[in-house]
């Protein structure tokens, strides 16, 4: 099924409401993600940022009480449509998590596994090398590909997780506070990497760190909570504009530190 939609958005949400049981966690989100840019989602704790991010590749499906209304379009196709297999959605829209979570396998296997289960037919060795290079990790691990992914430092583990996501060849990479467990230097490396990756990939990042959003993103969406504790999107625009000239009072209060 196709929609009359502007296909130059990487993801477009229309009237999205997300529920956990009877609790409405996020309401009425209309968001257009620009391809090959970095979009940051910021906002206070509990405003539903992560819930929104996880609904982009149907990771919320594993929460039994989760329910969603509205449409989330990817290439004009609603990813929540009946005939869409969430497995395929997650292959096209990859994810990096808050805490680095490499598999307890070798570095090589960490990267190769995703490609292999998705039926990759090419040369795995080349793919592993290329993705590790893309994730700016190759030089650090090339002599130790057989070592466990868990033997790396936190920052390296997170870059390994990014490499692992890249190996599946997604179009969009969702990052759920990817630097919250890392030190500033490792954080900076990830941010540089994100900048590099945004030439090929669309990146959506949820972050608590406003400086990070200001530094690293092209677009910023600010979410907050309503009186009924439902998250909602207050303002969305170019990062520069959001941080220097917010249109909404609530955004200004948040980024200037008066709230949050």
């Amino acid at each position: 099924m196709t929609h009359e939609t502007n296909n130059h958005y990487a993801i477009e949400t229309r009237g999205v409401n997300l529920y956990y049981g009877n609790f409405r966690a996020v309401k009425d989100v209309d968001l257009q993600i620009v391809p090959q840019k970095i979009t940051a989602i910021i906002g206070p704790s509990g405003c539903g940022k992560s819930t929104v991010l996880r609904s982009f590749n149907r990771m919320n499906d594993f929460v039994p009480s989760f329910r969603m209304e509205g449409e989330i379009l990817f290439h004009g196709q609603n990813i929540y449509a009946e005939d869409v297999d969430p497995v395929m959605v997650r292959q096209r829209i990859g994810m990096v998590f808050q805490k680095p979570n490499p598999f307890p396998k070798s570095i090589y296997e960490n990267v190769a596994w995703g490609a292999r289960i998705n039926g990759y037919k090419g040369n795995l060795d080349e793919l592993v090398e290329q993705t590790l290079r893309d994730a700016a990790l190759w030089d650090e691990v090339k002599d130790n590909l057989k070592k466990s992914g868990l033997s790396l430092s936190g920052g390296q583990q997170q870059r390994l997780c990014i490499a692992r996501a890249l190996a599946v060849k997604p179009e969009i990479i969702l990052m759920d506070e990817p630097c919250s467990a890392l030190d500033p230097i490792a954080t900076l490396k990830i941010e540089e990497l994100m900048r590099e990756l945004s030439r090929q990939y669309t990146i959506i990042i949820v972050t608590h760190n406003m400086q990070q959003a200001a530094r690293a993103s092209d677009y910023t969406a600010f979410f907050t909570m309503d009186d009924d504790r439902a998250g909602l999107m207050v303002e969305y625009g170019e990062t520069h504009q959001i941080f220097t000239n917010p249109r909404d009072q609530r955004t200004e209060d948040y980024i200037t530190g008066r709230f949050g």
Binding site: F62, V87, R90, F97, N118
Partner: peptide, 17 residues
């Protein structure tokens, strides 16, 4: 750990994989 399952699903693995 749930993080391991999520990592796997996040790569487009099926439940059985």
């Amino acid at each position: 750990p749930a993080s391991l399952r999520q990592a796997s699903y996040g790569l487009g693995a099926t439940r059985w994989q």
